[in-house]
């Protein structure tokens, strides 16, 4: 491209990238620092990672987060994919109602989601625990999965399914043999997004988790409030690595597979 942005623009851009990444980089580096209190570099250690394994609350929190993440991702991915199929491939009455319904979770502030669900659970006398957390995560993830899968479906040539049908495939066969192979990168990246949001969520979870069902973010929050020690850097680093790997995988998935022949 011929028009290069002016120097002052590039300066802002460089500053923004430093602003976005330096704090995380520092965080990671100091997870390997020996000293407990100082921000002086005193030597390399894996001590803080070992300490994580000794702390049952962290290990338990991690296990809970993964369990909630996987189950809420599975449910929201199925629900969201079905909704995206309906929106992209069917003419039906009440479409604008459904679209509005899908918008609500995207624009509602997390804190409102959290307390309104808390109210519902208390009203129903439903115990707070892993189930209540999972339901909350499914509720806020369905819309995001739907949006991601729907975008993929819209990029897909609708005549592919018609081609399959005229070649002799019925709707179900056409779905499995043609739609799903085209769609699965979209479904997977929707699922990855859902898992990441579930795995990272603190605000909503904090309202709907009971005692004994603290997920990892809840545990980390408590640690941050209590006292800052390098174990937090270590657990943060692990979360960062997991997220980065998920993002790279999802990015590859959406890039490698061509959407259509051209």
């Amino acid at each position: 491209m011929s028009h290069r942005p002016p120097a002052w623009v590039l300066a802002i851009v460089a500053a923004v990238y430093v602003f976005l990444h330096a704090p995380l980089l520092v965080l990671v580096v100091f997870s390997f620092n020996e000293s407990k209190y100082s921000v002086e570099w005193t030597g390399f250690t894996l001590h803080w990672y070992q300490r994580l394994l000794e702390r049952h609350d962290i290990v338990d929190g991690l296990v809970r987060s993964v369990a909630v993440g996987l189950s809420s991702t599975a449910l929201s991915t199925v629900f969201g994919t079905l909704m995206a199929l309906a929106l992209a491939r069917h003419r039906f009455r009440g479409r604008s109602f459904v679209e509005a319904l899908l918008y609500v979770p995207i624009v509602t502030p997390e804190i409102v989601v959290g307390i309104s669900l808390l109210i519902l659970y208390v009203l129903l006398g439903w115990p707070l625990g892993l189930t209540s957390i999972t339901i909350a995560h499914v509720a806020f993830n369905i819309s995001f999965v739907t949006v991601v899968v729907h975008a993929r479906l819209q990029g897909m040539d609708g005549s592919l399914e018609e081609a399959a049908m005229i070649l002799g495939a019925d709707e179900i066969t056409a779905f499995w043999r043609v739609t799903v192979p085209q769609l699965w990168p979209g479904i997977l990246s929707g699922a990855m997004l859902a898992f990441t949001m579930s795995f990272d969520d603190y605000v909503i979870t904090s309202f709907v988790s009971g005692t004994g069902s603290q997920t990892l973010p809840i545990v980390v929050y408590t640690m941050v409030r209590k006292n800052i020690e390098p174990s937090i850097n270590a657990i943060s680093t692990i979360v960062l690595v997991v997220t980065t790997v998920m993002l790279i995988v999802s990015d590859r998935l959406s890039r490698d597979k061509p959407l259509s022949a051209d």
Partner: peptide, 25 residues
């Protein structure tokens, strides 16, 4: 009916666990 069959699981979930709580609130 086909569309609503596809929409029902997610849609009902959203109505019960997202919209209803807001209304109750």
């Amino acid at each position: 009916a086909t569309a609503w069959a596809l929409l029902a699981p997610g849609g009902l979930f959203l109505l019960v666990f997202f919209v209803a709580p807001l209304v109750i609130m």
